[in-house]
Structure formats: C-alpha cells, structure tokens
C-alpha cells in the first residue's frame, strides 16, 4: 500500500483506541458526570427549598405587618370586650350575692321566730314552776318560822325558870 498504509495496523490502532475509550468512559467520564448531575440535583433541590422558605417568610412578614398595623384597633376591641365581660361578671356576682343575702336574712328570720317561740314556750313553764316553788316556799317557810319561834320561846322560858329556881 502507498504511504505504508497497513490494514492490520489500522485495526490494531482501532482496537487500542476502543480499550482506551471504554476505560475512560467507565472509569472517568461516567462517574464524574454522575457526580456532577447528583450535585446539580442537590443544589436545585436546595434552591427550591430556599425559594419556598423565602416565599413563606415573605407571606409571614406581610401578615405580621398587617397585624402590626391593626394592633391598636385590635387592642381597643380586646379591651372593650374585656370590660364588657368584667361588667357582666360583676353583675352576675352582685346578683348572686344579693340572692344569697336574701336567703340568709330569710333563714335568720325563720330561726329567730322559732327561737322566740321556743323561748316563750320554755319561759311559761319555768314561770309556772317558779310560782309553784315560791308559793311552796312561802307557805312552808312561814310555818317553820313560827314553829321555830315557838320552840325558841319555850326554850327561853324554860331556861329562865330554871335560873330563877337556882
């Protein structure tokens, strides 16, 4: 062949290059490319996450700004609501206290009348006993005194007579 072209050597060169190409593909090209793709996917995922977080944060910021703007009105509303609730509660407490006081007074009245009745009933009986005792005492007391006076006088006269005899 002209220029020393040799088909066998061409085939040898091709075979040699095929080995090189296969080795480079499996050992370098594919692993490096896979790594780069994985990293790309990782960063895309991260970017997506951060974009989502950013949008959420912006929404929250907007919401908070709105809340901050409406805070005074909201505070006033809350205050009036609280006052109203307090008023209602106080009314309720006062009502309850009044009812309870009425009940207590009613009960006290009842108790007092019952006690009075009881005392009056007890006092009648006691007076009757006292009168009886007094009468008895009066009656019995006057008899014994006269008797004692008689005995004393008798004794005194006896003693006088004996002294005179002596």
């Amino acid at each position: 062949m002209p220029l020393n072209i040799d088909w066998r050597q061409i085939l040898l060169h091709l075979f040699n290059f095929c080995i090189l190409a296969l080795a480079l593909y499996f050992l370098l090209y594919k692993p490096v490319k896979n790594f780069m793709e994985k990293r790309k996917a990782h960063y895309e995922e991260e970017a997506e996450k951060s974009a989502k977080l950013k949008s959420e944060a912006e929404e929250m910021k907007k919401e908070y700004a709105e809340k901050l703007n409406n805070a005074d009105a909201e505070i006033e509303a809350k205050r009036s609501e609280a006052l109203h609730e307090l008023h209602v509660y106080r009314e309720k407490l006062v009502g309850e206290a009044e009812t309870e006081a009425g009940q207590i007074v009613e009960k006290a009245k009842k108790d007092a009348s019952r006690e009075r009745k009881k005392i009056i009933d007890g006092a009648g009986k006691e007076i009757a006993d006292m009168v009886g005792a007094a009468t008895e005492k009066l009656v019995l007391g006057s008899t014994s005194d006269a008797y004692d006076a008689f005995l004393n006088a008798a004794e005194k006269s006896i003693e006088k007579e004996e002294n005179e005899i002596k």
Binding site: L12, H13, N16, A23, L27
Partner: peptide
C-alpha cells in the same frame, strides 16, 4: 507483528491513561 513506532506510542498512551483513570476512580472520585 512488525509495527510502526506510532503503534507502540499508542499502546503506551493507552496504558498511561488507563492506569491514571483507574487511580482516579479508586482514590479521587
């Protein structure tokens, strides 16, 4: 086989590159 020096160079290049690729695959990647 009688070959031109170029083919021996090609084989040496392949050997160098393959060894380099193997080392990179095992230790670097």
């Amino acid at each position: 086989l009688p070959v031109n020096p170029g083919f021996i160079s090609a084989v040496i290049v392949t050997a160098i590159v393959v060894v380099f690729a193997v080392l990179v695959r095992i230790f670097a990647i």
